[in-house]
Nucleic acid binder design. Structure first.
Length: 419
DNA sequence: TCTGGGGTCCTAGGACCC
DNA sequence: TCTGGGGTCCTAGGACCC
């Protein structure tokens, strides 16, 4: 039996989240900035109509935004995460098989649903009513086609937010109008390859010679084509795979030069990543640290990273911070204006599967207990209520966030007040 | 002055072993 | 002086995603 997938995608998600609490901004241009107020990462349709590009640096567009009375928000991840959870709850309530794909997207397995389009229309209404977030839904026998259908549903109002593709030749007229670079999995590199091969539309990619495709894009290309032809290659994962890595990194609010500042920042990011590990019940076996100057400056650039395999898998903040600050010291070069630092933890394992080493003692019960207490306090009273001294007190490198909306749903002191 | 952050997957190439 | 080939594991880096 043919599978039927749906892709539910929130429209302009971060902007829609802000509008839930600012209904006066409905119909008006709104953008949301990335961390550090660096880039524009979400735009309302009205902002898109003003030709404000995705990823544009804020400082370059500030004047233009003011001139056109665009409302600007700093990023508010607590709010977006919370509303995302509420959207996913609604989806899970109406469908038994949901794969959460990102903060604003989920695949549903609608195989066996008698009228998927009618189902999707109703679901769309429900999410809008219950959570206040508008969504678009694409339906198809493969994930790639569901993505295409979703994109069409979002951009062409005559579809009313729901579009279905079948995986047969009846898709072809629509695929002819769909640019190849809009396909899921086609980025800049593959788009260039397609361009030189004369492949312009999704239709062209569907019927292009498979030998050529394999030579140029290897299995990635072949899989993409299979999916466009209606044969499902990308499996549906109702249960998420265990996470394989965690990253914590930030650009600094202002550039720093001192080793001690970098170590403080790296210790802070390490603490954040280690907390993620503990929350997920995972440990890490490999720690990687990097520091770099701004990639936009033309001179005096420096970037370097270094990693180390850990003798004993751990998620202990103190142990990891100590290693991380040592590593920073080995790659630090004085005289540079550092802009960013980060920590990657790789080779994650299940916490329960503790491996003993001949050379090092296992993480002691005492250390685990300390971490548990620290987490409990910080979960209850807010991040960094208590923290290791290595992560610093002044944090001169801390991010900038000048136009933030309140944490309406996750902080009692900031809940919306009805007048 | 000011340009995001967190992930996954794939491939190439080196090290090492037999 | 002559100097193989195949397999596996690891890491780095590219490409892509949201």
């Amino acid at each position: 039996m043919n599978r039927v997938f749906a892709l539910v995608d929130c429209n302009n998600f971060f902007v829609s989240c802000e509008r839930v609490f600012r209904p006066d901004l409905e119909g008006k241009p709104v953008v949301v900035l990335s961390n550090n107020d660096g880039c524009i990462v979400a735009r309302s349709n009205e902002a898109k109509a003003l030709d404000i590009p995705m990823g544009a640096p804020y400082f370059k567009w500030k004047t233009y935004l003011e001139q056109h009375h665009v409302t600007v928000f700093s990023t508010n991840f607590m709010l977006y995460g919370d509303l995302s959870g509420r959207v996913m709850d609604v989806l899970q309530e109406h469908c038994s098989s949901v794969e959460i794909y990102s903060i604003d997207e989920a695949f549903l397995d609608l195989t066996g649903v008698p009228d998927p389009v009618a189902f999707a229309r109703e679901l769309r209404q429900t999410v809008r009513q219950w959570v206040g977030i508008p969504v678009s839904i694409g339906i198809a026998p493969t994930k790639t086609l569901a993505k295409v259908a979703n994109s069409v549903a979002k951009k062409q109002s005559q579809y009313g937010g729901v579009c279905q593709l079948t995986g047969t030749a009846s898709d072809d007229p629509l695929l002819q109008t769909f640019p190849v670079e809009g396909i899921w999995g086609v980025g800049r590199g593959h788009a260039t390859t397609f361009f030189w091969g004369g492949v312009e539309s999704a239709y062209d990619a569907k019927y292009v010679d498979a030998t050529w495709l394999k030579e140029k894009m290897h299995t990635t290309g072949l899989r993409l084509q299979e999916e466009l032809r209606g044969r499902s290659v990308h499996a549906f994962h109702a249960e998420p795979d265990p996470q394989k890595s965690v990253i914590a990194s930030r650009s600094f609010g202002q550039q720093v030069t001192a080793l001690s500042d970098l170590q403080e920042a790296v210790a802070t990011f390490t603490a954040r990543a280690a907390k993620k590990l503990r929350d997920a019940g995972r440990t890490t076996t490999y720690l990687w640290v990097y520091i770099c100057t701004s990639r936009f400056r033309s001179t005096d650039r420096y970037s370097n990273g270094i990693g180390t395999a850990l003798e004993v898998p751990t998620n202990d903040t103190l142990a990891l911070s100590a290693r991380a600050t040592q590593l920073v010291e080995t790659i630090y070069k004085p005289g540079y204006m550092y802009q960013k630092a980060g920590v990657h933890m790789l080779g994650l394992q299940d916490e329960a599967r503790e491996q003993l080493s001949f050379f090092m003692p296992p993480t002691t019960t005492k250390q685990k207990h300390l971490m548990a207490i620290m987490d409990r306090i910080n979960d209850k009273f807010g991040e960094r209520t208590i923290f290791p001294a290595s992560t610093g007190v002044a944090q001169t490198w801390k991010v900038k966030r000048e136009r933030g909306s309140p944490a309406y749903t996750t902080e009692w002191k900031e809940v919306a007040i009805v007048r």
